[in-house]
Design a protein around this nucleic acid. Structure first.
Lengths: 241, 241
DNA sequence: TGTTTTTCTTGATCCAAATCAAGGGTTTGA
DNA sequence: TCAAACCCTTGATTTGGATCAAGAAAAACA
């Protein structure tokens, strides 16, 4: 899809505000933005997202997809859920690593080819720093998931996910229950059972809205990285001191 | 510990050959190398490796340690095993993320403070690229572990780990069985039972040396990223086409 | 060299979550 | 507006790996 001039102007204004372009201005980014590509994917579409054919930097403009890996048996793990403004960079993957992008909704992706990204990095040190920042956050969040997936029980996983949503997204479960379950490496049945355990403790999920009897029921499930975005972080009410 | 001049010369020659300093020369790196610090840790020592007190870039000169996360119950996950020439960069962690370095052997670490690394990145684009490369590989390897840990059975995990060792390290299990087990997110007992299953299939582990009846017994457990370093990769004998 | 300490193996038992199964809700779209 | 498709819940059953326990083997050490 070739974007029209009018669209382009709008897209550039949108892009400039993304964290990956922090502390860079429009003039600096002009050459990079000129290489912008747009592509649409539709719901339930599954695309191999390897670095061979997709050595790009993708930005989710609109829609929702998950980055997954499926094994011979058909079991899948969700490596990342990519929401609006989310990024994926197959350009940084090994040429032999095969992941799939599994589109949950109709989705519009922006992308820049690897060479254009490399050129922008060479010209603007700040952009290199932003890329480093992006990768460091990816490492961090993969380490955090490893921890959650391996050490926590079903109930703790769901509790942890809800604190996440409580703090970041105004008390709403952002995705469907089964998508969330698969992100947490569990079956929808187990997710459902964990929720009904939490319900006994005063955590009610009412049509994706989280409702709490007292307000602190989820604090037990919080971790310090997530917690640092919480209004009560390091106050006497918070478990993290 | 303050390194002597004679040592320094030797250390610099050692450092220059590490992947993180690829395509950089001694003159370029002089200012960074001048900030080199050395620190010794002894066996069984456990040190918090957060970005608050350890906002550095560490290089394992000699010894062995694991980067772990321990929860309230005392259960631990191994995020990374850091062997000689291995690197860890708490400078890239969130200030609220707490991991521990758990020293398996007496270990000597080199490190550079964050500011010195930042300065070197600003001065030498190639060094920024190397840091990006390092982080990209960390992301990749965390994604691969997530896959292995979540999707594979105990037997498959051990099989996978042995292929790894077969291909990279001349048919030897590099670490003790229990360290390997914890890296694979399983108990030593399960590791042992998985090994005896594999033994039935012709995979014998004789004093950490891997011996195979036919030679291809482990190919079932191989993945394409690991496989790309195998001599038989993409030949008719290889399962990856 | 023999003794102590640590690591590894094997067996018995247990448990959390997966799987299987079926009914109830909710969304989609003809 | 109603049926089909999909998602969610609840119950019964299974199961892979954890845990507990105790002995065997190997490594460390004096």
């Amino acid at each position: 899809m070739i974007p029209t001039k009018k669209h382009l102007e709008r897209y550039h204004n949108y892009l400039i505000n993304l964290p990956i372009f922090n502390n860079l201005n429009k003039e600096d980014l002009k050459p990079l933005f000129d290489t912008l590509q747009v592509r649409q994917f539709h719901k339930s579409e599954v695309v191999a997202f390897n670095s061979k054919e997709h050595s790009n930097l993708y930005i989710n403009f609109d829609g929702l997809f998950k980055l997954t890996k499926i094994d011979e048996r058909g079991d899948e793990i969700v490596l990342k859920i990519v929401d609006r403004k989310g990024m994926v960079s197959p350009m940084h993957f090994s040429p032999h690593y095969n992941v799939a992008a599994d589109f949950v909704k109709n989705t519009t992706l922006f992308y820049f080819p690897q060479e254009a990204v490399a050129k922008a990095m060479a010209l603007h040190h700040q952009f290199s720093l932003n890329i480093v920042q992006f990768l460091a956050e990816s490492v961090q969040s993969l380490m955090l998931s490893a921890e959650v997936l391996q050490l926590k029980t079903a109930k703790e996983k769901v509790g942890w996910y809800l604190v996440h949503s409580k703090i970041n997204a105004t008390f709403t479960l952002p995705y469907s229950k089964s998508l969330t379950a698969s992100y947490l490496g569990m079956q929808p049945e187990s997710f459902s059972r964990a929720l009904s355990e939490l319900r006994k403790d005063g955590v009610i999920l009412d049509n994706k809205k989280i409702r709490l009897d007292n307000g602190d029921e989820l604090c037990t499930y919080c971790d310090p990285v997530t917690g640092s975005d919480c209004a009560f972080f390091k106050t006497p009410d918070c478990i993290h001191d």
